[in-house]
Design a protein around this nucleic acid. Sequence first.
DNA 1: ATCGTTGTTGACGTCAGAGTGTAGTACTGC
DNA 2: GCAGTACTACACTCTGACGTCAACAACGAT
Lengths: 212, 212
Amino acid sequence: MATSVPEPVRRLPRAQRREQILAAATQAFARAGFASTSLDDIAVEAGITKVILYRHFESKTDLYQAVLDRVCALLATHVGQQVGEFTEASIDGLLAAAAAEPAGFRLLFQHAAREPEFRALTDRFRTEIHDIAHVQIKAVVADSAWAQWASHLAPTVAIEAVIAWLDAGQPDPAQAADRIRAAIGGVIAAAARSTMDHITLVPDRPGSGGPV
Amino acid sequence: MATSVPEPVRRLPRAQRREQILAAATQAFARAGFASTSLDDIAVEAGITKVILYRHFESKTDLYQAVLDRVCALLATHVGQQVGEFTEASIDGLLAAAAAEPAGFRLLFQHAAREPEFRALTDRFRTEIHDIAHVQIKAVVADSAWAQWASHLAPTVAIEAVIAWLDAGQPDPAQAADRIRAAIGGVIAAAARSTMDHITLVPDRPGSGGPV
DNA sequence: ATCGTTGTTGACGTCAGAGTGTAGTACTGC
DNA sequence: GCAGTACTACACTCTGACGTCAACAACGAT
């Protein structure tokens, strides 16, 4: 079941072996998260034995942290260098990072986000999107509770939209970012709309693409 | 840390004790999922010892299944009796169920959905929303890949919108369903929009609530 | 008030999985 | 060609969590 190497390859350079383990661990952890993935699972995935893992990493937690750090670094590279610099344009970076490392992206936002011990990592990105969204949302949403709702939902929609994009087979990346921004805009519009408005699930004029 | 009873209550009727265990287990499991929650954690949460759990449930898996079944039953009651009968109106049911059992709702869709062994339960609801959404989406989204994207994303947004609503303090339930439907409509509109359109994250006319 | 029923308890068996030695083998420098 | 180094593998120990057993305590019915 090892996805990496069919034959009993041996003697990889240390750095390369480490990268291979990290890649395999990313795949393995992405399936069921930290607790449900054993070191033997990862070893099999990497085509080695459990002991080798300890030659490269202190512990299971250390390995997991390294995997998450690698994904975070990748994300930071694509999204933007500085913390707090998250803007609308960063959606492109999110997509690029997800395309580069789908399993890592899923691991970070679907599993690590639910694990109390590692939740802080993903919260860093979430709060960035949350904050930038909250500033903009406060301007258009009068009701503070609904502004908070939209601020909570917007980051989630951004991330889930990227994951759904992966699931859909990564169709034309050039337009994905715009569509995701549109979806987020739709969420914000839903929070901003007056209580009198009513809405139909299906637009009246299909494909009209009116203002959102 | 037992949330249920401050004093050493004893001698509860069997059915009542079972319900109390289920409620405590729901809270405990909701924090970290199945694998990361020990039976002792649950016992402490319920204010009893581990052995009692086995007087009421065969195994940890059995207990977890009972917890999930209870939440599913609650959900089915609120959302609609018959399977396959999911409509736009079911959003109201989702909100009612989430309000009645927040921890259970989170457990079902945030944790159980990621656990391969129990994923089938949540997928039943997800596929219902997915199917009803897909039928409507296919009518307005020409590109099949983006139709699939929206169909994947719509159920997630529905559920995440409900969770965000819980996080925001459950503001005016009467309008929540409409706003969530609007948010889903925004997602579909994002998939339906032509490739020429451009969008701003913040609507041009705040509060205008134009067609979505 | 007492007996049976039921809930409760601390201590124990068992097993999967984390973490660790010792031995073997392939690449690199002299 | 040889020695040193470093990566690999098997067999082992140990912790922690699931699951179990005997004894104790409290409530209801007679």
